[in-house]
Design a protein around this nucleic acid. Structure first.
Length: 940
RNA sequence: GCCCGGAUGGCGGAACAGGCAGACGCAGCGGACUCAAAAUCCGCCGCCCGCGAGGGUGUGAGGGUUCGAAUCCCUCUCCGGGCACCA
């Protein structure tokens, strides 16, 4: 490093460190980034200036391993944008919290014996230190951690609101459960079996009401992971049927679990996507996740013998028009009708391939089910297999068309009704099954002549072999068959969703306790004044790695003195057993944006007026919510869908002013980094590799190969912000990250390029400050006309780039302006320096503060509180323009024209240009065109 | 298999509404300053032909629309991401 004999006032890492520390201390002392609320504890007598803006990053999990340079990319981008908007006159709410419950802290605690809270808090401190060094303009008073008791008290409060609500399908919204009970008790709504409310026992009343709640207990097949000692949500299990964390084995077990009725909101979650300013890819992922499909429910009477008792097999299908192509039926292995429809013995003539080699249907079914339960969903998907139950079903509208009933694992219990009608002519999966078991194939839609005979046909065409549907196209056939099915009582149209209800409970310690106690009839909500339900201190808190065949057991069950409580919840003191499950990590992140608004409010989750000020949409048709939310695309579905769901419930119950939490979403790209492997395929530390793409890369003299990947320990290619602070300073790091490319794009990190951003800042510095003396180099003469016009074009371009978050091009324009100053070599004219420093302030705030105070004196105040420069429109228009000339589509020259020149004048000027004239060469002009200021086109 | 993105110099990227392709930065080359080096400043920098003026060619490939296409349309290739027996 050449710093030893560098000029004393050069802007380098040492000076940057000094400047950054000094200004950060002053910002803190002045509370510069504290944002006032219209009322309440965070109100300020300085009042609310300008329109509001709420900008937010997805808050981080405070991991123990610290940050690499990829982590703060989004935070820097929002900070630059927020600073720009503040200078443009907005009252901006911008802060940062921590998503601190969850598995990693508990896993760490399990290995070290240290309580998760201690580890979590030290991680938060460390992460704060690394982030603070970047100079982010957060309102520090508003940050929350989901593990704060004052915070999770309100997470529990929201749970109670959800528990105490039901979804009214007629009103299409949540309503208080008390209103449902009122309707039952006044007979405005009848009970399922028609008895009067008062004739139901307490147990019956409770069961009826509990079955309507938005949070409910259900016996669900869950993913039990003994190695982690917990139940996992479907989305935490990989497609290989292992745990996403740790890659452990996962088994299906039935268990009483808390569920959230998100499916009730499926249509609203789907519809409102159209009103959001989100990346199209994220909306598409959510649409696919919800998976709405319109179809029909159809009942097939089935029995194990022609004169035996009948059971109805109900199927869901999107193609009711293909009903008459049904040649068999399939039940999922877990389907409840499998027992009833398993015959005593194989009917005569049953092919051997249908029996699975078993002596009786029940043996075959038992063996098949046992095998299916052992297999992961991925293994199940490979080939079509199944066994015959010995039963037959009758196709509706036919007396005689009976078809065999199979159990097969290509039908999933979790989708539709867990049963399908097998139509091998029109569905390729059914076709494959039919071929494996020698079942007949009947086409019900006429395929085009070139359609292969051995493939199902899923396209359009007239119905055939379908009785009264023959000749109708697919859509008309669907309509008619539905009408007939409905009239005959065999079925009806319905809408099915891929999305399931949200499995909400976890058998963990380090999560929010669910504020519920149980009596002999089931769950009872704790009253709000009993919140928070604090996590008990637990000495033996560690989850236990359990045997494969173990049953799920929550750690809280070990705190016996906590589990059993005596409470008076009205009607006298009695004993209850506490809920032992805790909430999933998603819970705390579902609503943190609301607490940012009013973090110290002890009476409300958020004051309604404060909520309205920050969240209500200025457009009457708008959805409201956070104005800009920035984060990784990995949260495209789960976090964003769960948060939308909770927000809609709170909206229905009147606690928030709009239907959506996040109005605009941007996914920042990832910073990737090159990783290097030696001849053995082992990664070598990337910072020890020499060479280039052309001459090849080497480590310790041995050739290595290069690949691009995620930054991290495993690829040995991490670069930490601390390294960059030490070599260049935080402002250079900020500028480099913003200069690398558009915010939403992945990009490879290249440490050797960072110096370019530092050199740009050094050139700016030199145009304002003398490196040798530290004196100002600014000149008091006004800029000449050319420079003044360049300045205003820069102001204009930088403003719109900042507004559009195109910080890379904003930096390029500022660099051009500064390069022009450097070229002149005389120090910056004061007016230009002033504007340039203000334009730099959002990007490199410490650097700009330092130059600002040198330019205007130490009591000039913060540059961040000045106005962003505004371009003078008069200086953006020019008298003359240089216009390119095309002849027959090829560029042949340029001419300078008055800006208001007409086509005739432009064309004659073009023809006067020698090179243009040479190419026209006296030939006839067939076409002439002048796009003012842009292009002259001649065709000869 | 289906659904989204994307492909521009040696590299990251720019061209915002169909109008000068390659802004800005990195790397590279040349020059000034220096005893020398570093730093800094000035210049060059897609490819081919040409001393030059200039010409040809060029935005993954092929075709189309247009006076004019990186940009719009069709076909294809490759890369990244998501979903995946969803009836």
């Amino acid at each position: 490093m050449p710093d030893a004999d560098a000029p004393p006032y050069r802007y380098n890492a040492a000076l940057a460190a000094d400047i950054e520390a000094r200004w950060q201390a002053r910002w803190d002392a002045d509370g510069l980034y504290e944002t006032p609320n219209p009322l309440g504890q965070l109100a300020s007598d300085r009042g609310l200036d300008g329109p509001k803006l709420f900008v937010m990053d997805m808050f981080p999990y405070p991991s123990g391993s610290g940050l690499h340079v990829g982590h703060p990319l989004g935070y820097i981008a929002t900070d630059v944008y927020v600073r720009f908007k503040r200078m443009a006159g907005f009252n901006v709410l911008y802060t940062m919290g921590f998503d601190a419950f969850g598995l990693p802290a508990e896993e760490h605690a399990r290995q070290t014996g240290q309580h998760p809270r201690i580890n979590t808090e030290s991680n938060i401190d460390n992460m704060r230190r690394q982030l603070d060094r970047l100079g982010l303009g957060h309102d520090q008073r508003r940050g929350v951690a989901t593990t704060d008791v004052d915070y999770y008290r309100w997470t529990q409060w929201i749970f109670l609101q959800i528990f105490n609500s039901w979804f009214d399908p007629d009103a299409r919204r949540a309503r208080p459960i008390a209103e449902l009970m009122e309707e039952f008790s006044t007979a405005a709504r009848s009970t399922p079996d028609g008895r009067a409310w008062d004739d139901l026992s307490e147990a019956e009343q409770r069961e009826l009401v509990d079955g309507h709640r938005l949070a409910y207990v259900a016996d669900a097949p869950v993913n039990w992971c003994p190695a982690l000692g917990t139940v996992l949500a479907n989305e935490e299990v990989t497609t290989q049927g292992r745990s996403e964390r740790g890659n452990h084995e996962v088994f299906k077990r039935p268990l009483k679990q808390w569920m959230m009725r998100i499916t009730a909101y499926a249509d609203r979650l789907l519809e409102d996507l159209d009103r959001l300013d989100w990346p199209e890819s994220v909306k598409t992922m959510q649409r696919n996740w919800i998976g709405r499909s319109e179809g029909a429910l159809i009942s097939f009477p089935a029995s194990t013998s022609p004169d035996g008792p009948m059971s109805d097999i109900e199927v869901f299908t999107t193609r009711p028009d293909t009903l008459f192509g049904t040649t068999y039926m399939v039940l999922a292995p877990e389907h409840p009708l499998v027992e009833e429809l398993t015959a005593e013995a194989w009917p005569s003539g049953t092919p051997d391939s249908w029996t699975g080699g078993a002596a009786t249907p029940s043996e075959a079914v038992a063996a098949y089910r046992a095998r299916a339960s052992e297999m992961s969903d991925a293994d199940r998907s490979d080939s079509k297999s199944g066994v015959f139950l010995g039963a037959h079903a009758t196709v509706p509208f036919t007396e005689s068309q009976t078809v065999p009933v199979f159990v097969a694992d290509y039908v999933l219990m979790g989708y539709g009704t867990g049963a399908v009608m097998g139509v091998p002519g029109e569905d390729q999966r059914d076709r494959e099954f039919a071929e494996a078991y020698g079942l007949p194939v009947v086409r019900t839609v006429q395929p085009p002549p070139d359609h292969p005979a051995d493939l199902a046909y899923t396209g359009e065409g007239p119905s055939i072999n379908s009785r009264f549907l023959d000749g109708l196209d697919v859509e008309a056939s669907k309509a008619l068959i539905l009408e007939r099915l409905q009239a005959a009582g065999f079925g009806r149209s319905t809408v099915n969703y891929r999305m399931r209800d949200w499995l909400f409970s976890r058998q963990r310690y380090w999560g929010e306790p669910i504020p519920i106690v149980h009596d002999e009839h089931g769950p009872v909500a704790l009253p709000e004044d009993r919140l928070p339900v604090e996590l008990p201190e637990l000495v033996d808190w560690a989850p236990r790695a359990l045997a494969r065949d173990s049953e799920p057991e929550p750690p809280l069950g070990r705190v016996t003195e906590w589990v059993d409580v005596e409470l008076d919840l009205g009607g006298g003191s009695r004993r209850y057993r506490r809920e032992l499950n805790t909430m999933p990590q998603w819970a705390g992140s579902c609503w943190y944006y609301l607490r940012y608004l009013d973090p110290r409010n002890d009476d409300h989750l958020v004051d309604p007026d404060v909520e309205r000020y920050w969240m209500a949409d200025p457009e009457p048709s708008g959805v409201g919510g956070v104005d800009l939310y920035v984060g990784g695309v990995e949260h495209a579905v789960l976090h964003l869908l769960y948060a939308r769901f909770w927000h809609k419930v709170l909206y229905d119950l009147g606690y928030v002013s709009g239907p959506e939490p996040f109005k605009r979403l941007i996914n920042q790209g990832y910073i990737q980094a090159y990783a290097f492997k030696d001849g053995r395929g082992i990664y070598v530390p990337a910072d020890e590799v020499d060479g280039s793409l052309r001459e090849g890369f080497a480590h310790d003299g041995q050739p290595v190969t290069r690949e691009l990947g995620k930054m991290g320990k495993s690829l040995k290619n991490s670069v930490t912000p601390d390294d960059m602070y030490a070599s260049y300073g935080a402002d250079t790091l900020r500028m480099y990250e913003m200069f690398m490319g558009p915010i939403d794009q992945d990009r490879p990190w290249e440490t050797r390029s960072v110096v370019g951003s530092q050199r740009v800042l050094q050139r700016v510095w030199r145009n304002v400050v003398d490196e040798e003396t530290g004196e100002l180099r600014v000149i008091d003469d006004g800029p000449d006309d050319e420079l003044l016009r360049l300045l205003h074009r820069t102001i204009d371009g930088v403003s719109s780039d900042m507004e559009g978050m195109r910080f890379n091009t904003a930096i390029a324009k500022l660099t051009e302006l500064n390069n022009e100053l450097t070229k002149r070599g005389s120090g910056a004219p004061r007016e230009v320096a002033d504007a340039m420093i203000r334009m730099l302030a959002p990007l490199v705030p410490h650097f700009a503060e330092e130059l600002w105070s040198r330019l205007h004196g130490s009591d000039a105040g913060s540059v961040t509180q000045t106005e962003f420069p505004v371009a003078d429109p008069a200086l953006l228009v020019t008298d003359t323009v240089e216009v390119p000339v095309q002849v027959n589509g090829k560029l042949r020259g340029r001419v300078t024209l008055p800006a208001d020149a007409g086509e005739e004048a432009a064309v004659s000027a073009a023809l006067a240009e020698p090179n243009v004239a040479a190419h026209v060469d006296g030939r006839e002009l067939r076409k002439k065109l002048y796009v003012p200021g842009r292009m002259i086109t001649l065709v000869v």
